[in-house]
Design a protein around this nucleic acid. Structure first.
Lengths: 335, 335
DNA sequence: CTGAAAGCGCTTACAG
DNA sequence: CTGAAAGCGCTTACAG
C-alpha cells in the first residue's frame, strides 16, 4: 500500500506537507502543491480514509437504518440519499434493525459512523435514546418518536387525504374501509388520525369491521383484502397505509377476480413509481419522496459538520406537503 | 468517547488486555475476561472499528458497485447480500459508478474497503483492471469481463431459454422479436447468443427489424415496444433481456390497449417478485437470485480472509441454473 | 511556508 | 497469562 510517506519521499517534502498539499491547505506553496500532486498521481496514491478518520476523530460514513431492505419504498429512498451524501463527500452504509445479533445501538456506535438516518423508527424505539446518549447525530426520516428530539423530515398527510375524501364523497362511497400501518409508528398513527378526522368532518365513519392494521408490507394488504372481501358487506373502498400495502390489496382483488374499482376501490399513499404503471394506475397520495430523501441527507450533514448539539441550537424539521393523485383504482360506487 | 483505556482503568488491567479479552483471545484468563467484559458493559464501550481497521491493516467494509440504484433488480440483490455480509461481521457500503466525480477506482481504493462486489461490470470496464492493479479483492456479480480474472457468480441462461423456446414453438410463434441488453455486458451478450443459438436449432429466426437493444431499464422495454408495435408486421412475441425491460414492454402494451398475450406475448428474465404478482403474471426465466447474492458475499469474504491472490490459487466461480416459468404473458398465436 | 512530533484507538509481536 | 511498546496512516498544533 502506498502511503503519504512514499509520496513525501518522491516529492522531496515531509509527510506532513503531503497531507496539507493534498487537502489543498492554503498555507502550502503552489509549486510545492504541484510537486506533491504529481508525485501522488504517479504513485497512484489516495489518502487512506481510515487513517484520516482516526486522526480527525470522525469518519465521513453515514448509516441508514431500516428494518426491511426488500421493501420497494426504500429503494426510492436510498438512491437519492446516496447521491446527496456523495455530493458532500460522505458514504452510505446500510444497517438493518433486524440485525438482532448485536443491539443495534452498539452496532451503530461501533461502526465508526459520523451520523445516522433513522428510517424505521417506531414510537417505542430505544435506538434514538441510545444515540442521543452517545452523542451520535441522527435525523428521523419519515417516522419520528416524540420522546427524543432530533432533526426530522416528515410528511403531512392531511392535504392529500382531504382531497381524497372529497373524492370519496363525490363518488358516493359510504362503506369505507382502511388498512392502517402499525400503531407504534408515527406515520401509521398520524395517517390514521388524519383520515379519521377528515372522514368525520364529511360525516363518514369507519366501521370497526372494515379496519385492518399491520406492517407497511405487501402481505399486510394481501391478507387484509382477503378478509375484507370475505365479509358479507365488504367496504366499497379500502384506504391503505401506503402504496406497498395497497399493491398487496390490489393484487389480491385481481387474483380473486374482483373488479377494481367497479366492485371495490383501493387507495394508497406514497405514489411510488410502480403505482403509476399503466398496469397498476393506483389512486394515491403523493409527496416528493426524492426531495425528502435528499433533505434528510442534507440535514444530517449539516448537523455533523456544525457539531452543534440538538440541545444547544434546537432542531431542524422539514415537513413535506401531500397532494391527491386520482387514477384508476378509485371509482364510483355501483348500484 | 469511551476507549479501551477507560475500560482498562476500570477493570484494573492494561489496555492490551482489554483488547485481547474483548476479542476472546484464549490466552486471557477467564476471570480477567469477565472483569473486562463487565467493565466494558458498564461503560457502554465497544471497540472503535476505525482504530481496529488501522491497526489490522484492513477494514470489514465491503463495497457494492452498481450504476443504477433505482433499478428494482438491485433491491433484491442488496438485501440478501447485506444479510450475508453482516453474518460474517462485514458492513455494506454502496458505491455508484455514475459517481464520475472521482474515478471510481480511486474512490474504491480510497474508501478503506477490504473488498468489492461488482454488479454492473461492462465488457470494457476499467474498474476491474484498476482493482487488480491495487490488489483489492473483488468478485463479479452477474456480469463479468473476460479480461481480468476474478471470482464470479453468474447465471447460465441456456436451460431456461431452451424450455422457453420449446414453448414458443408449441404455441406457434414464428415472428419472434427481442429486446436485448447492451452488447457491452456479458449478460446481454450471453443471453443474446444463447437465445439466437437455441432459436436457430428450432428453425426460428430473429428478423433484424424485430430486434431492439438497450440498457436493462424500464424505459428500454417501453420504447422498444412502442417501435415494435408500430411495425406493419409486429412480432408475435417479444423476448426481453430481463424482467425490468419486460415490465416496461408490458406496460406499454397495456397502455396502448394491446392485449397480452392475445395480440402480443412478452417474456422476461430474472423472475423478480413483481413478475409473480397476479396483476402481472410475467412469463420469465428464473434462477435463485437470493442465493446468488449470498454466494457473492461469501466468495468475497473468503477471498478477503484467505488473503490469497487470484494468481496464486485460481478463481472461484459459481454458475446458477435457470428454469422456465410459464405464466400469463406468453400465449398461443391467434389466427 | 515547512518540518518534527504527538496523537487518534486499536492490535500484536516481544518479553517476562 | 499479562504488560510495555511499537506501529497502522493520517492530521494538526507548535516551532521556526
Amino acid at each position: 500500500m502506498v502511503t503519504s510517506h512514499d509520496v513525501a519521499r518522491l516529492a522531496g517534502v515531509s509527510q506532513a506537507t503531503v497531507s496539507r498539499a493534498l487537502r489543498d491547505d492554503p498555507k502550502v506553496a503552489l509549486d510545492t502543491k504541484e510537486r506533491v500532486r504529481s508525485a501522488a498521481i504517479t504513485l497512484g496514491y489516495s489518502p487512506n480514509p481510515i487513517g484520516r478518520a482516526l486522526a480527525v476523530g470522525r469518519s465521513t460514513r453515514v448509516g441508514l437504518v431500516v428494518t426491511d431492505l426488500e421493501n420497494q419504498f426504500y429503494s426510492y429512498v436510498i438512491s437519492p440519499m446516496h447521491r446527496e451524501l456523495e455530493k458532500h463527500g460522505y458514504e452510505l452504509l446500510l444497517i438493518t434493525e433486524s440485525s438482532e445479533q448485536a443491539p443495534v445501538a452498539d452496532l451503530v456506535a461501533g461502526a465508526g459512523l459520523c451520523g445516522v438516518v433513522l428510517a424505521t423508527t417506531t414510537l417505542d424505539s430505544v435506538l434514538p435514546v441510545r444515540l442521543a446518549d452517545r452523542g451520535i447525530p441522527f435525523v428521523y426520516f419519515n417516522r419520528t418518536t416524540p420522546n427524543v428530539p432530533a432533526d426530522s423530515v416528515t410528511v403531512d398527510p392531511a392535504p392529500g387525504l382531504e382531497k381524497l375524501v372529497d373524492d370519496l364523497v363525490r363518488l358516493g362511497h359510504t362503506r369505507v374501509g382502511a388498512v392502517f400501518g402499525p400503531v407504534n409508528t408515527s406515520t401509521g398513527e398520524e395517517r390514521e388520525q388524519a383520515l379519521r378526522h377528515i372522514l368525520d368532518d364529511q360525516g363518514l365513519t369507519l366501521a370497526r369491521k372494515h379496519v385492518r392494521r399491520g406492517p407497511f408490507e405487501f402481505g399486510t394488504g394481501r391478507d387484509a383484502m382477503q378478509e375484507l372481501l370475505d365479509l358479507d358487506d365488504p367496504p366499497t373502498v379500502v384506504i391503505c397505509g401506503n402504496d406497498v400495502v395497497a399493491l398487496g390489496a390490489l393484487n389480491t382483488a385481481v387474483e380473486r377476480g374482483v373488479r377494481v374499482p367497479e366492485e371495490v376501490s383501493i387507495v394508497g399513499f406514497d405514489d411510488l413509481p410502480t403505482s403509476a404503471w399503466p398496469l397498476v394506475r393506483l389512486t394515491t397520495v403523493a409527496y416528493d419522496l426524492e426531495a425528502m430523501s435528499r433533505q434528510a441527507a442534507r440535514l444530517l450533514v449539516e448537523r455533523v459538520e456544525s457539531g452543534e448539539s440538538v440541545e444547544a441550537g434546537g432542531v431542524h424539521t422539514a415537513r413535506f406537503d401531500t397532494s391527491y393523485v386520482p387514477r384508476a383504482t378509485l371509482g364510483r360506487v355501483e348500484g
